[in-house]
Structures are given as structure tokens and as C-alpha cells.
């Protein structure tokens, strides 16, 4: 088969994961540079209708890769089915959204194919016929352009939010149903139902102003600084993962890939370095303010306004100025 790009779309419990469209947008962009046509595969059981939805995009074909063993996700069934499918199709490039599910099986799939996976890409370059994927390193302090040194198929995952799903070009493709290869032995992991913890008391996605704290806050008692600022602004307090891991704030106030995704009018990042896991949860905010002692912190790359300084001095001063501004207004 001629060179092509295969997008591995994702569904869970009969619902398409919308980030699949972001990966299709990525594949369409790469296709424009390379000329490789885009195909999509969706694994599951009874997923024709979902495959039809994917086929509304400008792609060459959508495969519904189906078997009862793919009804509930297990890494064993996914690796087995996709290994067989990819071995047969021999695409040049295989793209996945960088979801928790993909993180669970894609490395194993790559090795089973005796290939490699460039994970968590935030962009690509096509330089003189060479395809490079850009990924963050050292918690976002550096970016790296990474190349494939071995043979195709090349596998890569695309970080959530890198491409816009609503920018994926529309079209109309054929859906082909394919019976997935099924292993003789059952999956070694038994999955149970997906659930949410008790209903969350706060819905940060509705907050207009969020004051988020990170490691730079140092001690739990210093959270008062953020609470005072949030109060002056009429906003909510939130945090990056380490603060919630320490139990200083409840998990429901965590922003990032494992927590909530927010896009308030105003987002204060206090002592947050800006690791990608946090950024993906808040980069849609309209105005981002970063206060951090480290001028090199990656948070400044996405901030609209930044102060390099000691947050223990700067934050109380900002709170006072806000109060003044409010009183005068």
C-alpha cells in the first residue's frame, strides 16, 4: 500500500472522544506537507455509527475495527487487534491522541510491532523530507525535535489541545467494517465500570476568575495569600497537582489533565512552573497572569502578563491594589 497516515480514534462506552478530531486535524496538516492520504481506525464493538461521524471529515477512509473483545477497553485486546491491523495496512505514520487510554496501550503496541512511539507531541516539522515531532522536555523548560531513526510505521501521540478539532476539514468518507483479530487467550486485566467520585461541590469551569497556586506557595498556611486575592477578585482558588497531592486543597480544585479544564476571564498562576499537565487545563483562559520567582519558568510562555518576583511580597501587594481599584470603581 502507498504511504498513508492512520489516525487511531478513541471511543469509550459508545461515545467518541472528541480529541479524535484534533488528531484528524493534525493528520490533515501533515498530509498537506507530505501528500500522504489520511485514514482513520476506530476500535470497539458496534461502533459503525461513531465511525460514520468520523467519516464526516476530509479523510480517505474510516475503518470500524470491531469485535466483542473490544467492547470494554483492555490493553491486551487493543494491542492484539491494532497490531494485526497496522501490520496489514502498513501505514507510514500512525497518530493517536495523547489520552490516558492511549498511554496505556500505545507504547506496548509500538514494541509489539518492533517500532517506536514518539509520545506527547506538541507539533511537527517537515524539513527536507524528514518528519520531526516536537515534544516538551524537562517539564516544559525545553522543547525537543525528535526524529524516527528506524523503519515505518512510525507512531506518535499528539498532546490534547495542540490542534483544533473544530478546524478538522469536513468531507465525506466511506466506512469499512473490519473484523478485529482476537487472541486465543483472554485479556489479563479485568476492567470494571468507569465512575466519578461524589459530585463535586465546586464547578471551576463556571468561575470567571481563578487564582491557582503551585509548588511555589511552599506551605499550606500560605494558601491564605491566594484566598485573600481570590476574595478580592470574587474568584475561586485552584491548584496544580502537587498541592492537591499534598492534601492542601481538595482534588476537585485541581486544574490540569487529571483534574478540571477551565477557561476563565482571568487566571492567576501563583508559583506554578507550567508543566504541560497543568497548561492543558488552563491555556484557554482569556488573560493569564503569572507570578513566579523563576524568570525561565515555562508558565511565562503562555502568560499575557508576568511578574518575576517573590510571590510572598507581590501577591499581598496585588490584593491591596485590587481592593483599592474596586473601592474606587
Amino acid at each position: 500500500m502507498a504511504d498513508s497516515i492512520l489516525v487511531v480514534a478513541e471511543q469509550r462506552e459508545g461515545k467518541l472522544n472528541r480529541v479524535s478530531f484534533e488528531t484528524i486535524a493534525a493528520a490533515q496538516a501533515i498530509s498537506k506537507d507530505t501528500g500522504w492520504p489520511v485514514e482513520v481506525v476506530l476500535a470497539g464493538n458496534g461502533v459503525s455509527a461513531l465511525a460514520q461521524e468520523l467519516a464526516q471529515k476530509a479523510v480517505a477512509k474510516v475503518y470500524a475495527l470491531e469485535s466483542p473483545t473490544l467492547e470494554a477497553y483492555t490493553s491486551d485486546s487493543y494491542v492484539y487487534a491494532l497490531k494485526s491491523f497496522i501490520s496489514e495496512k502498513q501505514p507510514k505514520l500512525v497518530l493517536f491522541p495523547h489520552t490516558y487510554q492511549v498511554r496505556d496501550f500505545a507504547p506496548r503496541l509500538a514494541l509489539a510491532l518492533d517500532r517506536t512511539l514518539i509520545s506527547d507531541s506538541i507539533g511537527y516539522k517537515h524539513d527536507g523530507g524528514k518528519l520531526l515531532f516536537t515534544r516538551q522536555m524537562f517539564q516544559g523548560k525545553f522543547a525537543a525535535d525528535v526524529s524516527f531513526a528506524g523503519d515505518a510505521p512510525w507512531l506518535a501521540t499528539i498532546q490534547i489541545g495542540t490542534f483544533r478539532g473544530d478546524h478538522a476539514e469536513a468531507g465525506s468518507a466511506l466506512v469499512e467494517n473490519v473484523a478485529a483479530a482476537v487472541a486465543d487467550s483472554p485479556a489479563r486485566v479485568t476492567p470494571h465500570e468507569v465512575f466519578q467520585e461524589a459530585k463535586q461541590a465546586v464547578d471551576l469551569s463556571q468561575a470567571e476568575v481563578i487564582v491557582a497556586v503551585g509548588r511555589g506557595i511552599k506551605e499550606q498556611k500560605n494558601l491564605a495569600l491566594a484566598e485573600d486575592l481570590a476574595k478580592a477578585l470574587g474568584g475561586e482558588v485552584a491548584a496544580s497537582r502537587p498541592i492537591c497531592d499534598n492534601g492542601w486543597l481538595p482534588l476537585e480544585r485541581q486544574i490540569g489533565s487529571s483534574g478540571q479544564t477551565v477557561a476563565p476571564k482571568l487566571y492567576f498562576a501563583l508559583g506554578i512552573s507550567g508543566a504541560i499537565q497543568h497548561i492543558v487545563g488552563m491555556k484557554g483562559s482569556r488573560t493569564i497572569v503569572a507570578i513566579n520567582k523563576d524568570a525561565e519558568a515555562p508558565i511565562f510562555e503562555i502568560a499575557d502578563v508576568g511578574v518575576v518576583g517573590n510571590l510572598f511580597d507581590v501577591v499581598p501587594a496585588v490584593t491591596e491594589e485590587i481592593k483599592k481599584a474596586r473601592a474606587g470603581a
Binding site: T116, A144, D145, V146, A149, G150, E301, D304, G306, V308
Partner: peptide
């Protein structure tokens, strides 16, 4: 075996936004 992926270049990421530094 030989590394199947290689870092061609490591660099400070380009800014995605113009940040007003105060």
C-alpha cells in the same frame, strides 16, 4: 538495540504569546 528515535535538537521553546513583563 539502536535507539529508534533521536533528539535532533533541544532548545528553549518559542513563545506562543507576547507576554507583558512587569
Amino acid at each position: 538495540s539502536r535507539n529508534q528515535q533521536e533528539i535532533e535538537r533541544l532548545y528553549v521553546p518559542q513563545k506562543q504569546k507576547k507576554t507583558e513583563m512587569i
